[in-house]
Design a protein around this nucleic acid. Structure first.
Lengths: 215, 215
DNA sequence: TAACTTCTGTGATAATTGTCACTGTAGCAC
DNA sequence: GTGCTACAGTGACAATTATCACAGAAGTTA
């Protein structure tokens, strides 16, 4: 079981040095999470950096009333930037990560990930790159909320979803509404409009995406 | 002129090691910027890390049509996290920083700030802390847009403004509307409502804040 | 097949926000 | 003072989004 994992990590994180890979194998745990499982939640103590080996995570925000709001998806080979900002967090703002499909995550104890920053150039670069990338994605999300109407945000959402999991978007209208912090009826209507333009075809429980750039 | 600057930097950035301070003094330029001056704009090449020595910067987002949207304020002793993510940026998303009052910024060439990450622990910590903090603030901003109505966002905006520059908010309604990406009339009406609760008093060109937590 | 649940479609209506048009007022230049 | 400009207040109306109510279709279980 060990060799396949090493190969897998190597494939997903080709930028890591050999010695770093060995340390990861020796010191981290690999956890299998089921679809829908919560992988992390800020406010709780984070004692590990979270890297994604296989599967797909969604990272989202939740306010006091339980409204959620999708920030971005995390794909294999990437890390949750927040889990690496390993000092104490302020409690009020909750970030959650949940598995969209069955996934494998690598958990690296915080003190090691901290040490490695100085020890391994490739780790250091990886961490910095993660920060940068998440920051960018967050900004894009912010843009779409700040400047765009719900119709454009829905488009943005669908595009992102197609990118990570293909042209068969297997989501209910309710689910989409939740992630955009809107309501089902509104999403239904907007999707209908999209269907009329020919960009998508609606089915029960999934949406067939043809071409979102036509719109 | 050199000694006062060193003292000043030392006071604003007490966490830096002595040798790092010397390097900063030797290699960075200090720039005076007038009120309203643009300090940075992404998309253009960023060749320096930007630290704020004195004054106040606002960091905001601008879309293609010129709509702006306030992200956060930057106070002395802090740095623009984005200016330290020194690799090439993607062009479309624009982040701007503008001086709110006459300010002094320290410009550190990117290649040095890169080197220092490995060389000085205190610099490394500073950069990581900056990322973290900006990330948090960005999340707060995102929350307010995603989950709150304009009335709450206005409150949030006023509070933040009071924090950085006191209870006399010297801004026109139009200015506030721009930073919240709304329109003057709407802001005027909401402010009137706030005045009726006794939280603020309106004047020409400034708002007197009494207590925003009453609302 | 019947009973039940989940998902989707749709009309009516309300609330929020944006836009337009117009007024008044304070300050400044001349 | 007269004019000019920037700022603020307000009513009317439009657009977007949310909410409520209900109906029907698809899938599941018994």
């Amino acid at each position: 079981m060990e060799i396949p994992q090493k190969d897998d990590i190597l494939k997903k994180f080709p930028q890591f040095e050999q010695t770093l890979l060995d340390e990861i194998l020796a010191n981290s745990t690999i956890k299998l999470v089921e679809e829908g499982d919560e992988v992390m939640r800020t406010g709780q103590y984070i004692r590990s950096s979270v890297l994604l080996l296989n599967g797909l995570l969604k990272v989202y925000r939740e306010d006091e009333e339980g409204n959620e709001f999708l920030m971005y998806y995390l794909e294999p080979g990437h890390a949750c930037a927040l889990s690496m900002m390993c000092t104490a967090r302020d409690e009020q703002s909750q970030i959650m990560a949940k598995a969209v499909v069955p996934s494998e995550v690598i958990l690296i104890p915080s003190h090691l990930s901290e040490q490695w920053l100085a020890k391994y150039k490739s780790w250091h670069n990886f961490v910095i790159a993660s920060y940068r990338q998440r920051f960018e994605e967050l900004l894009q999300t912010l843009d779409s909320v700040a400047f765009k109407g719900l119709d454009d945000r829905l488009l943005f959402y669908l595009k992102r979803h197609v990118q990570v999991s293909g042209k068969e978007v297997r989501l209910s209208h309710q689910h989409i509404a939740d992630e955009l912090n809107s309501s089902r009826e509104v999403i239904s209507r907007l999707l209908k409009k999209l269907e009329q333009t020919g960009a998508i075809t609606l089915h029960r429980n999934y949406i067939e995406v043809h071409d979102l750039d036509l719109v």
